[in-house]
Design a protein around this nucleic acid. Structure first.
Lengths: 189, 189
DNA sequence: GTCTATAATTGGATAGAC
DNA sequence: GTCTATCCAATTATAGAC
């Protein structure tokens, strides 16, 4: 059972970014959490910028795979949208965390250009995926009142991210559920 | 013409928080911006926590007054909602800033309990105000398809804040407009 | 009210031993 | 791969002169 320090560091860093922001944690925090000295972290990630790039890449891949899994396991538009909502809801950790993309977006000024590019690509990927979901929901009739799938997709991503922020602000997941209530009423059960 | 250093510091700090987050600026930055030495700032705001409380109080008052002005100058529900959307849009500064509440919400872990309380009160105030706007919009028929004003209000605040975050992430105000497009189609011109 | 000077701590990062 | 030791810059904050 080989110990994967690099993965441990990424796990610890992701938790830290999502709970405290990119400027809110240090190599000392990671060292404490993972159980090595902070100088040793530089062996795996020479700079904090390099660490952030690795974080964002791993995250984009994971969410992309999650979306594919949703498509494989859920045939209806409403079911797929509900699954994505659940994904964003789960990232909240009872209002103590944000998803990585939201946290990074708020820390924009401290990030390297490479990460900023990745954020843009990630957001575009989610909007594309959501557009497909709304198109399907219109076809199969499982999402009501869909007239403009692309506009629905952009609005839905903003709603999800804003609802996360609100729940984080008040450290109360009920805020997220309240914000999603209206969209939920449009989904076939 | 008396120089109000305290107000200058608050202005500079608000710009800094909104552009770079609460952890993203220092007293050195403010000193540079305002033109005094950083030690002098402690005369006006003993700690960064005290500064953040003053910022949040001033902001809440200003937005509350802006909402009252909207009510005074705009009779319809749709007009009032459009005016609030314009307020949030204006805070973006072409995608280079967030509003103070969104920026503070993302920096939650670095804030004093007092500021966190203020954020909760501020968000509740906005939701109350928006609920009234949607009730009016239902009565005067200027906002279409309003069935649950309170749910609309929570969803709208999340949409506004999420759209700000998206526009900031991509430093493109078009992202904000895209996210608000669907809500806009429900408003009477 | 603002200054200089400085304390005390922490930040990311490097060198070189093991 | 991980360690100790260290560097240098930046951070919030204080003391005391003007």
């Amino acid at each position: 059972m080989p110990i994967d320090t690099k993965a441990d560091l990424l796990d610890s860093a992701e938790r830290a970014v999502r709970a405290r922001g990119f400027d809110g944690f240090s190599y000392a925090d990671l060292a404490n959490d993972v159980g090595i000295r902070k100088a040793s972290i530089h062996y795996h990630f020479p700079t904090k910028a390099a660490l952030s790039v690795a974080l964002m890449q791993r995250y984009a891949t994971a969410i992309q795979e999650a979306c594919t899994e949703i498509e494989d396991g859920t045939p209806t538009g409403s079911g797929r949208l509900a699954a994505l909502i659940a994904l964003y809801r789960g990232a909240l950790n009872d209002g103590k965390s944000l998803c990585l993309c939201v946290s990074f977006s708020a820390s924009r000024e401290s990030l390297s250009p490479e990460v900023i590019t990745h954020i843009g690509q990630f957001r575009a990927m989610i909007v594309r995926w959501l557009t497909g979901v709304f198109e399907l929901g219109r076809q199969d009739g499982s999402i009501s009142d869909v007239t403009a799938p692309a506009a629905e997709a952009t609005a839905t991503l903003s709603l999800l991210e804003g609802a996360q922020l609100g729940a984080r602000a008040e450290e109360d997941i009920a805020m997220f559920d309240d914000a999603l209530e209206l969209l939920n009423t449009r989904l076939a059960k």
